[in-house]
Design a protein around this nucleic acid. Structure first.
Length: 319
DNA sequence: ACTATTTGACCCGA
DNA sequence: TCGGGTCAAATAGT
């Protein structure tokens, strides 16, 4: 007879499988809707219903996104509740910070002079390092098409990486205390089967950290508008763009960063999974339980994101 | 003038 | 000590 613990473990596995199945279906739905959008919207360009159709399709994708994030959250909660160390890392982190601050202010044996200096000195910067457990990574040719506004706050050259990594945080970090951040890094040259004429798109690895607590999402907000530089999205422009495959990029032009900064608002995200099984394979991976990798379907993107005219139309749409 | 980006310095975990 | 994430002053763009 099974003991209580193993029963719980069994139940956990079963619902984990259910979550994966649900995620699979939603991912498939997203893929289909995105492809449908790519067909329908260009066809309705001069039609007044285009606006409505765009919003409806966006609504569907938004529902899927929320469903996915809910499922992922549940899955994470379940998996973390199974794991023996379920510490509140934030709390631990904060404690460390407090200790650090206290010790740094205590250890100056000499006093008033030091105190004066402290007053004049720059405030102690406390960097709270992110936790990788919260990350979601994906690969995409359009790293800024995620429905949120981001502000770049840093760029670093990463060891053994050809391209620098750019760091973004939510534009509404201050107003809405949104703690979402992401990093964008151009991938090494890779050849993709889907590419046309052998002119493969530049792919970026985007890693998201934290949840958006702001509610300013792409097309949903009235004063948002989409401005997407052609060089960001067209294959030809990739060749002309300074951000192309050059290995000695100027920092200001490196990777996507300067391009990305020109995107006032990205189109709402399309989390398209090329192969649902890949997503599922990544989901409860033993050592990275909370990290998902979503692979973007280039064929679904192509008509939508690589078409400059379409970008202009979306601009008009969301004003 | 205001906002966004760049970039060197700082900080912290491994 | 090193690598990488963040800060914040300087700079660029509008």
């Amino acid at each position: 007879m099974k003991n209580k613990r193993s029963l719980v473990a069994d139940q956990s596995r079963v619902s984990s499988v259910n979550f994966r199945a649900a995620l699979s279906e939603i991912a498939r739905e997203q893929s289909l809707v995105t492809q449908l959008r790519a067909i329908v919207l260009p066809a309705l360009q001069s039609d007044e219903r285009c606006d409505i159709a765009a919003h409806m399709l966006e609504g569907i994708l938004d529902c899927s996104r929320k469903a996915i994030s809910q499922l992922q959250l549940q899955l994470q909660l379940q998996l973390s509740s199974d794991s023996p160390h379920n510490d509140d890392d934030d709390h631990v982190d904060d404690e460390r910070r407090v200790r650090k601050i206290v010790s740094s202010s205590d250890d100056d044996g000499c006093s008033s002079k030091a105190a004066d200096e402290n007053q004049n000195a720059k405030p102690i910067r406390q960097h709270k390092r992110r936790r990788f457990g919260d990350s979601v990574s994906l690969e995409t040719p359009v790293p800024h098409y995620d429905g949120h506004q981001w502000r770049k706050y840093g760029q670093k050259h990463i060891n053994n990486a050809k391209h620098p990594r750019s760091y973004y945080r939510c534009t509404y970090r201050q107003e809405e205390k949104c703690k979402a951040t992401k990093t964008v890094q151009q991938r090494e040259e890779l050849h993709y089967a889907n590419s046309n004429n052998g002119d493969h798109p530049i792919m970026y690895t985007v890693v998201y950290y934290g949840q958006h607590t702001c509610c300013k999402v792409g097309p949903a907000s009235a004063d948002d508008h989409a401005v997407v530089e052609a060089s960001q999205i067209s294959n030809e422009s990739h060749c002309q763009s300074p951000s192309s495959s050059s290995s000695d990029l100027q920092p200001a032009q490196a990777g996507d960063s300067s391009q990305g900064s020109n995107i006032t608002v990205t189109c709402s995200t399309s989390v398209v999974v090329e192969d649902c099984n890949k997503l599922l394979d990544m989901l409860p991976a033993a050592d990275e339980l909370t990290t998902d990798v979503l692979l973007f379907d280039m064929t679904a993107y192509a008509p939508l994101d690589l078409d400059i005219n379409w970008e202009m139309d979306t601009n008009a749409l969301w004003v």
